[in-house]
């Protein structure tokens, strides 16, 4: 029971990050390796702003945290959009390799800036873990895990509805499938790419909030969840939104299960990546990846 909830919770975090990878890949056809570092920036923003509101303000703790979180979302969303405009947009149409190298560069740049501002020492902050645990029968479940699973589910359902039912969401799907044809519909591709980066970064900020109870904050905080979520996106089929969700949850559950047994605990990451390799060997396009149908 505890393992199930914790696994789903970690899975939801990976899924939220994986959605950013997969949507950006679907729309801009590039791997945004700096995506993990948005989580890191989000974590520092939440940390700094929470500390600020808690020490200076007369606000209740939860209100301070809420304000800190909302401001962090806005900052990270803007960061994602600015990153795209400044670093990636000039490279649209250039070789995918150039964009990839640039993304790796942006990743190191963000880590460097974070180290300049906040230093290299680890920090931590309790927000969701302040809520403690709830007893269900004989077991104690962390509120933070429950909140992560519930909020994660709401966000993912909301995103799916947004993409399927709204004008902008439909335009995102169109650009992802055929950019030229989308342009012929009058879709402004630059705007859609920008919206995609904004959504991805917003989701990453949620992931940061949910990730904080189990991690210390440092400039490299985003690397591990970033890589794992990227693997999750590939497992699910990069470019596919439900794929990112399935891949994320699968990886999160596998990780928590492996960690809970002494025999496998020290091999968790190796097992996760072995899983990635096996799935890609059996199904190179990922679990829910789509082959493009061509009919003439």
């Amino acid at each position: 029971m505890v393992i199930a909830i914790d696994g789903l919770s970690l899975g939801a975090i990976y899924a939220l990050i994986a959605l950013g990878y997969t949507m950006v890949y679907g729309i801009a056809k590039m791997l945004n390796f700096a995506h993990g570092d948005v989580i890191m920036v989000g974590a520092y923003m939440i940390y700094t702003l929470c500390t600020l509101t808690w020490t200076t303000g007369s606000l209740p703790i939860w209100a301070g945290a809420l304000i800190a979180f909302v401001v962090s979302i806005v900052v990270c969303t803007l960061l994602g959009m600015v990153n795209e405009k400044v670093a990636y947009k000039p490279l649209r149409g250039a070789s995918p390799l150039a964009a990839l190298i640039t993304a790796i560069g942006v990743s190191y740049l963000l880590q460097g800036i974070a180290q300049l501002i906040w230093g290299a020492e680890q920090r931590s902050i309790s927000i969701l873990d302040r809520l403690g645990t709830v007893r269900v029968g004989t077991v104690a479940i962390r509120w933070s895990s429950i909140i992560t699973v519930v909020c994660g589910a709401i966000l993912m359902i909301g995103l799916t509805l947004f993409v399927k039912k709204t004008r902008t969401g439909r335009a995102m799907l169109a650009v992802s499938e055929d950019k030229g044809a989308a342009q012929m519909m009058g879709i402004n591709v630059n705007k859609i790419v920008s919206v995609t980066f904004a959504i991805g970064s917003g989701l990453a900020t949620f992931a940061a909030l949910f990730y904080l109870p189990t991690t210390a904050i440092s400039p490299t905080l985003g690397s591990m969840p970033g890589i794992k979520a990227f693997a999750a996106a590939v497992i699910g089929g990069i470019g596919s939104i439900p794929g990112a969700v399935v891949g994320g949850i699968l990886l999160g559950v596998v990780e928590v299960v492996c960690n809970s047994f002494e025999a496998t605990a020290s091999y968790t990451t190796a097992i996760e990546f072995a899983l990635l390799i096996i799935i890609l060997l059996v199904r190179p396009i990922g679990l829910l990846g789509k082959k493009r149908r061509v009919k003439v």
Binding site: R170, L173, A174, E177, D178, G180, A181, M184, K290, R292, R293, K295, V296
Partner: peptide
């Protein structure tokens, strides 16, 4: 467009 290019997945 040439080849129709309808959005096949939609």
């Amino acid at each position: 467009p040439e080849g129709r290019r309808i959005f096949q997945e939609l």
